[in-house]
């Protein structure tokens, strides 16, 4: 039997496998709506790996929240149902179902250094198609876009080259193909 959320009773099961899921949540852009979603996750003990939000329809005043979360299949189902229950939520779409959607994240990466390290940082950034958006004699700020793993790899490579600071947007995602979700 799989792990059951919300039970006061022991259910030991080490086998319950966790999956990672990206959810797109369309909400009314009203005060407190983000707090409702975030509070739901903390209150019910769900994970948030990343969360992004912005108004995507300025006329209809709806926002799109992209949440990357993880849990067993049962918990993911519960998360979707619980979010769907919030009153200002229009829709909850699981972008990991069927054909997985496309995920992108942007990061701003500051690297300081001189000499060989500086040259190497620039070379690596070209290989990753990162753009230099700020330069001084002793530093760069790179802008890089890609799947989260690509950004992880880039940041790891920059560590020995004088990585100073990283700022990431978190994942945004969309489904493939012609249809709207």
């Amino acid at each position: 039997m799989s792990q059951q959320p919300g039970s006061a009773y022991f259910l030991v099961d080490a086998r319950a496998r966790e999956i990672r899921t990206t959810l797109a949540v369309i909400v009314d852009n009203e005060p407190g709506v983000l707090a409702r979603v975030v509070g739901l996750f903390s209150g019910r003990g769900y994970n948030i790996e990343s969360l992004t939000v912005a108004e995507t329809d300025h006329i209809g005043h709806t926002s799109r929240i992209t949440i990357v979360t993880s849990g067993t299949v049962e918990i993911i189902e519960q998360i979707k149902a619980q979010i769907g229950r919030l009153i200002p939520v229009h829709r909850v779409i699981d972008l990991s179902l069927d054909k997985p959607g496309i995920e992108r994240e942007m990061a701003l990466v500051k690297v300081a250094g001189s000499g060989d390290k500086r040259v190497e940082a620039l070379r690596v950034s070209e290989a990753f198609r990162a753009r230099v958006i700020d330069t001084t004699h002793s530093s760069f700020v790179f802008e890089i876009t890609g799947a989260p793993e690509k950004i992880d790899a880039f940041v790891d490579l920059m560590k020995p080259l004088g990585l100073v600071e990283v700022s990431r947007t978190g994942v945004v995602a969309i489904s493939r193909g012609a249809e709207a979700m």
């Binding site: 039997m1 059951q4 959320p5 006061a8 259910l11 619980q82 769907g84």
Partner: peptide
């Protein structure tokens, strides 16, 4: 949980029909 008791021993051999107005109640614990 006041009703089910130990979940992994709850009504072990039944098929369950669940009628509820709240979709989040479905498959929450059973």
């Amino acid at each position: 949980d006041r009703v089910t008791g130990r979940l992994d021993a709850f009504s072990p051999s039944s098929k369950k029909i669940h009628v509820d107005i709240d979709p989040s109640s479905i498959n929450k614990t059973v």
